[in-house]
Nucleic acid binder design. Structure first.
Lengths: 334, 334
DNA sequence: CTGAAAGCGCTAACAC
DNA sequence: GTGTTAGCGCTTTCAG
């Protein structure tokens, strides 16, 4: 049996309120008693029961995080950032991996509701009205990270996808490439799919390279799909000398395909990625990519949620963080 | 304000006990009342408060997972397995990433204690007496995954590291290699370091290749360290034609180093890894490796913990799961 | 089959 | 400063 406040009180020969006081406002208790209590706490290894506390405070000091795919390195970074922020702010963190499964996501929300999490960070996924309504119905405050909502006014933190994609493609163009393809996210299940495509289009158009706009194929989040998409892309457009991949994992899939076809990267084809995962500098060749401040995104999302929780609102609704081009070995001048 | 059982009772015009009954034993309530209650529950989106429940049941139906490094793909698999098992068994999961920091780990245990997790899965790390004592002091049952303890009798699930390492090295020998090196884990902060080294030694000795035993360098968990260790290894032993890496991430670091030195893999040097991460089949060249049943390890650990929690003991204390050699492209006959 | 009431461990008035 | 006590929301006897 775990010791309760009563056991501590008995051992220290004080009332339970005194024990409660030394746990919460030590200075309001005279030193002699305080010491006795603290000693009893030590000896019994007493830890206040958070159920009892939760009942009173009506807060769990726990945040929930919903991520689509824990096997994607991107989210490991978001988790680290968020976890560090949680430590700083005094929250525990509950991470749930939805595997991009609607039912699972919905049931995790129920779970969060039951466990009384104070707020939720919803990562990277499209906020379908169904999700939104459920969250609102449960009265759980939430923010979006690496995502945003056009339909609803939900606080969010992300990079400027359009601008970042533009920068990537512009870099390829400045390298002298004229035949540029793209491996993008399917637009129907991805928030960043459309803006990154827009960035691709804008860079091309601005340089009079519109003929490339159609040279894009789509994949859904994973390496294998990107490999397949690369196959389609190079079958249709063998003239390509550069490709913009909207995720580092796509860049790896593309390079892997090219390798199997004996096409050299960056010798014959330049490939640029997006995200700057930890793996990206380990890959061969090391990936040129658009770095997202992944850790910071997670950190900031937790702070923003905290802001929402404590003040009831956020200073800036939709926040953009800086991206940065990282030039490594997968791209070369044409 | 979230609705309470009282609100539901009022709306359904029954007592709170009746509401409690339809939530927990619906059949003990006549249909008419039951329907009224269920309707009220729907309309109010009532969700029982788990604090109040926890106070009564003295259980949180939550498990804790302690992992050393969430940016290591290995743990993503463990998490997935464990999370699926948790869903099946009716637990929520609380994941904490220690970043291999002692203080942090200890404070997470306090956190788990306070949050009243029912049990903990401790992943991959060495169970220092300090950790053991704290866990025991908190009276939180726990099991080890991808780890074991020689000092204490703690339930564990892992692969047979010695045997698996032996298989890896034997494979290299059977390929005709006579000059074989190793990049291992530092023995002082790794559980699987020693047994994998033992496997290396046994395979070598058995084939009369003892002269290789000294040809080993150590790294601590990450790519960059393995890159450095590979540098040391090949500086000291340039004659090597094969290297056994005790982690896929080490194999990647080694290959990356070799690539920078313009040494071909597998053309001039064969490299075998260990783990079979998702990335390993994406790497160039695709990694030959010893596959661990990562997902199953996580799944099984949760089941084992559940067994410990419900029956007070486990059928088999230290459980070994099957590993498997996966031959891909990073190895070749000598 | 159903309601009243006790109590889980804790905090926060409220007296002293 | 410190103790007493009334709940927080729920489950579970115990009567009826």
């Amino acid at each position: 049996m775990k010791p309760t406040i009563r056991d501590v009180a008995r051992m220290a020969e004080v009332s339970i309120s005194t024990v409660s006081r030394v746990m919460n406002a030590p200075n309001s208790v005279v030193e002699s008693k305080r010491n006795r209590v603290m000693e009893a706490v030590e000896r019994l290894r007493y830890q206040p029961n958070s159920f009892a506390r939760g009942l009173i405070y009506k807060k769990s000091f726990t945040l929930g995080l919903l991520i689509p795919d824990i096997e994607n390195l991107y989210f490991a970074g978001v988790i680290r950032g968020m976890q560090d922020a949680c430590i700083k702010l005094g929250y525990s963190l509950m991470i749930c991996n939805t595997d991009r499964d609607k039912e699972r996501l919905l049931s995790y929300i129920d779970n969060f509701h039951e466990k009384q999490v104070d707020g939720i960070v919803f990562a990277s996924d499209v906020l379908y009205p169904e999700y939104h309504d459920k969250l609102v119905g449960c009265r759980i405050p939430f923010v979006l990270v690496s995502s945003h909502s056009d339909e609803f006014d939900i606080p969010s933190v992300e990079v400027d996808d359009e601008e970042a994609a533009y920068d990537a493609v512009k870099f390829l163009i400045d390298l002298g490439h004229k035949d540029i393809g793209m491996i993008g996210f399917n637009h129907d299940n991805s928030v960043s799919g459309p803006p990154r495509y827009e960035g691709f289009v804008r860079a091309l158009t601005e340089s009079g390279l519109q003929q490339n706009i159609m040279k894009s194929k789509y994949a859904s989040h994973r390496f294998e799909h990107a490999y397949q998409a690369a196959h389609e892309l190079f079958t249709d457009y063998p003239e390509l000398t550069a490709v913009f991949c909207v995720a580092d994992e796509f860049a790896m899939g593309t390079i892997s395909y090219l390798k199997d076809r004996n096409i050299l990267v960056p010798g014959q084809v330049s490939v640029i990625g997006f995200d700057n995962l930890r793996m990206s500098s380990m890959f061969i060749p090391k990936l040129t990519t658009i770095a997202q401040p992944i850790y910071e995104l997670g950190y900031r999302a937790a702070e923003k949620l905290h802001e929402l929780l404590t003040t009831g609102e956020v200073q800036v609704l939709n926040e953009k963080m800086e991206h940065k081009l990282i030039v490594r070995e997968s791209t070369r001048e044409k």
